[in-house]
């Protein structure tokens, strides 16, 4: 049967194909993404985020009720603080299963004995989680659209600030998803992975508040406190200010955390 099928007319390879080194990555990425939509967790996360976005939407509406606001719509959304709640909680939940589940079921062994490198595995899982995270944020666009639809002329909905807000969401998301990957790579328990990711995420978030006591200080500590304040970075993004320093900061941090994740995944080789 096999040889007949091999010479069959309809079974030729398509003219395009992924390069050999990219194909395992794309295959794993597809499987990881589909896993979110095949499991309950994906839908629970989306529903919860939708609920929180809805709450922030209500707050935005009441904020606009009657009086005209000077600030752009995205800034009004940011001031509701639901952004941080969603970011801090959803990233650990999205990422907790990535490595921990594979470790606990043993599929990690079947995965790592296929011709795919550790780096490609980490990158594929990270990309899948980040993509799901961004899909999860899409309803925000609808919320902002609805508000702008019902505000009279001089609409505060401006595509540039929305774009920069989404850039901020992506960059901070990349960092937090990377942190989640790292936490998940450490353990075979999903709960533990989520807790560690939440703790790490909260710690970085809390560092923003160092700016209060130290921000005015002269010298090194003042500079450091101003540079690691995630709150103010995001404030820039929602105002429509894209500071390349912060872009580099988050891309670099995410890359560094992913590098650590690769090392943790490789650690079975020298542990």
């Amino acid at each position: 049967m096999g040889t007949d099928a091999a010479s069959g007319v309809g079974l030729r390879e398509p003219p395009w194909a992924w390069p050999r080194r990219v194909q395992p990555f794309m295959t794993l990425l597809r499987r990881e993404l589909s896993a979110y939509f095949l499991s309950l967790t994906g839908y629970v996360v989306m529903a919860a985020v939708l609920f929180l976005l809805g709450l922030s939407f209500v707050q935005m509406l009441t904020g606009y009720n009657g009086e005209a606001l000077e600030a752009p719509l995205t800034e009004v959304f940011y001031s509701t603080m639901f952004f941080w709640l969603i970011l801090l909680v959803s990233a650990p939940v999205i990422t907790m299963r990535l490595f921990a589940l594979e470790r606990s079921t043993g599929t990690f062994e079947t995965l790592m004995t296929t011709p795919i490198s550790e780096g490609a595995v980490v990158l594929a899982k990270f990309t899948a989680a980040l993509t799901f995270y961004l899909v999860m944020w899409l309803p925000l666009l609808v919320c902002l659209g609805i508000v702008s639809l019902y505000t009279p002329e001089g609409s505060p909905f401006e595509w540039r600030t929305v774009a920069s807000t989404f850039l901020g969401i992506t960059l901070l998301g990349a960092f937090y998803v990377a942190l989640g990957c790292l936490a998940s790579a450490f353990t075979r328990s999903q709960v533990l992975a989520a807790m560690v990711a939440l703790a790490l995420g909260l710690t970085f978030f809390m560092l923003s508040f160092l700016r209060g006591p130290l921000g005015e200080a002269q010298g090194l500590w003042g500079v450091v406190a101003n540079h690691i304040s995630l709150l103010t970075h995001m404030e820039d993004f929602v105002r429509g200010v894209v500071d390349t320093r912060w872009v580099v900061f988050y891309v670099g941090l995410a890359a560094w955390v992913l590098f650590l994740t690769v090392k943790v995944v490789e650690s079975r080789r020298w542990r």
Binding site: L11, E13, P14, P24, L28, I116
Partner: peptide, 17 residues
């Protein structure tokens, strides 16, 4: 099959086999 580097048509054929 795809993870182990088989092409699209090839993986379909091998999976059938």
């Amino acid at each position: 099959g795809r993870l182990k580097g088989l092409g699209i048509a090839e993986s379909r054929r091998r999976v059938d086999q």
